[in-house]
């Protein structure tokens, strides 16, 4: 998958001497139409867009993403809607990679093979499945690879050295490093310096893999983690959507401003 869109995005960022910016928003938050508009607008600044498929029992997500997910479900977003959001987005910008992220039960109920087929048809570039860890994810990951979809492995500060090697070996173009012991959107409780040290241990194993850091990254902290291949911001964006709705302001404009500022910090 050497020439995958995901790989190309990292290459482009590297050429510009900066980390790639990855955004996370929940599909259908707060409506199908709005979430597509948000996606289109922030893709001006984001290098890769993660799109969450909302689940009502998310065991690894903090308050901000939970709120977004509940809001989207309440507004009636279905898996097929998510695929149609991706399709429409890809017609608008076919050069931007889209990564779907969510929990395994939804894929399981939809049917693994049907899900992958739909991903391929709507041009999804990658998948993150939070509760399908290595090695249980091996079969699913290889199915993804056969269909030219990146299955993104996660690594955490608790991952042992031996596991780390095995996970990297089975990984595709991108690896997601969880910055600290936390659900999404927690306060950064480890110093950025320390996070980068841990991050470099992963890079040392295989320099060709693109490793991104996520969890707890905000406008305040993003600059300090600049050395990474990529940085993911999710909860801070979801929080802005919640805030904008509460204040009856334009979510698209407000969220785009946040993403633009994030990008400026790492340029």
């Amino acid at each position: 998958m050497n020439n995958s869109l995901i790989n190309q995005s990292f290459k482009k960022a590297k050429k510009e001497n900066r980390p790639a910016l990855l955004t996370y928003t929940v599909a259908g938050d707060n409506t199908k139409k709005k979430s597509l508009e948000i996606l289109k607008s922030i893709s001006k600044y984001a290098d890769i867009c993660e799109l969450g498929f909302p689940h009502n029992t998310p065991i690894a997500d903090g308050g901000q993403i939970q709120t977004s997910a509940y809001r989207a479900i309440k507004n009636g977003v279905k898996i097929n809607d998510i695929f149609s959001i991706v399709s429409k987005f890809k017609k608008f910008r076919k050069d931007k990679p889209i990564i779907l992220m969510g929990y395994y039960n939804m894929i399981y109920q939809y049917n693994e093979n049907k899900f992958i087929k739909k991903c391929k048809k709507s041009k999804v570039d990658g998948l993150i499945v939070v509760d399908l860890p290595h090695p249980e994810n091996k079969i699913f990951a290889s199915k993804c690879k056969k269909n030219k979809i990146n299955f993104i492995q996660l690594i955490s500060p608790t991952t042992s050295k031996l596991r780390l090697k095995k996970i990297i070996k089975d990984s595709h173009d991108m690896i997601y490093y969880i910055s600290m012991l936390s659900t999404t959107g927690g306060k950064l409780k480890v110093s950025p310096k320390r996070i980068i040290q841990e991050y470099q241990k992963i890079k040392k194993q295989n320099k060709s893999k693109n490793v991104v850091i996520g969890f707890g990254i905000t406008e305040k902290t993003i600059k300090l983690l600049k050395k990474a291949d990529g940085l993911v911001v999710g909860s801070a964006i979801c929080k802005e959507i919640t805030k904008s709705i509460k204040k009856r302001q334009n979510t698209v404009i407000n969220v785009t401003n946040v993403v633009r500022k994030l990008k400026n910090k790492i340029k």
């Binding site: 065991i59 690894a60 395994y104 939070v130 509760d131 399908l132 860890p133 290595h134 249980e136 996660l154 690594i155 955490s156 500060p157 608790t158 991952t159 042992s160 596991r163 969880i178 012991l181």
Partner: peptide, 21 residues
């Protein structure tokens, strides 16, 4: 070995962070 009873019930569908604990 993956923790499934009858090949399909149980298992450990957990985030990476909980693998070690």
């Amino acid at each position: 070995k993956f923790g499934f009873w009858g090949g399909k019930f149980g298992g450990s569908f957990i985030p990476e962070t909980l693998k070690k604990p």
